Simulated assay, not measured.
Amino acid sequence: MKKSFKRKIVTLAIMLMAFNSFACECYCEGDCSFRAVSNNNKFVALVKVIEYSDFLDYDIDDYDQEMPFSMTVEIIKKYKGDEVKNRIKIWGDNGILCRPYIANFEIGKYYLISPRQIGSDSENGNKEDYDFFACWTDYLTVDFDNGIVYGEYTKLKSEISLEEFENEFEK
C-alpha cells in the first residue's frame, strides 16, 4: 500500500511539472538566427514602436504594470514583403502562446523585425496583423542614432551595423 501511494504522488508530481512547463518549450532545429529567419519569412522591416495597443485583463507574474498584449509600430523601411500599410499591429504573449511579451519592446525604440502574419481573427490577434515566435530570433534591437543592430544576427554575430545589414540583405 505504501509503495502504491508513493507511486501515485510521484506520478502526480511529474504530471504537474509537465503541465507547468508546457506553456512554451522552445526547440529550434537548425539555424534560428535573425538572418536565417528573415531569409525564410515573407516580411522584413525596420520599425519604430509607436504605442501599446491592447492590454491583458489579468496580471502576469513579476510584471507590476498593466501588461500590453499588442503594439503598433511604424514601418521606417521595408526590406522584404508586400505590406503596404505604414503602421502595423504586432501581437505578443498572454502567458501561453510562445510569443515574446510586448513589454519587452519599448515605445519610441527601433527594431529590425521579421514577424509572421496572422492568418485568421481570434482573441490572440487579427487577420493580417503580425506576431513573433519566441523560439526564433525574429526581431533585433536597433540603436538608430548610432546605426547599430543588437541581438543574434547570426549564430556567431550579435552586433552588426545597420548599413552592413542593408548591404548583406540586398545581396
Rank of each mutant, 00 (worst) to 15 (best):
L56Q: 07
C24I: 01
M1K: 09
N39R: 13
I60Y: 01
S53M: 02
D121P: 11
M71T: 04
I14E: 08
N86G: 15
N104C: 03
S33L: 07
N167C: 00
N39F: 01
F43W: 10
M71I: 08
Y58D: 10
E159P: 00
F5H: 04
Y63G: 01
S161E: 01
S158E: 13
K171Q: 12
F34S: 07
Y63S: 02
K155R: 13
V47I: 15
E166R: 08
Y111K: 06
N146T: 03
C135L: 04
I160V: 15
E106G: 03
E159G: 01
K171A: 00
P115Y: 04
E29Y: 11
Y153N: 07
F5C: 03
K3T: 08
F133R: 08
L140P: 10
D82V: 02
D131A: 08
E159D: 12
Y58M: 09
F105A: 06
I75H: 09
P68K: 05
S33N: 07
Y130W: 10
L140D: 10
G119N: 11
K3D: 12
Y63C: 05
Y139M: 03
E159I: 10
E170S: 15
S4N: 07
F133I: 09
W136L: 15
R116V: 08
I60V: 15
S70E: 11
S38H: 02
E123W: 03
S122R: 05
I76L: 13
R116T: 09
S158Q: 12
F165C: 09
F69Q: 12
Y110C: 08
K2M: 04
D129I: 01
G81M: 01
F55G: 06
G119M: 11
G108I: 05
L140G: 09
Y101D: 03
G119E: 15
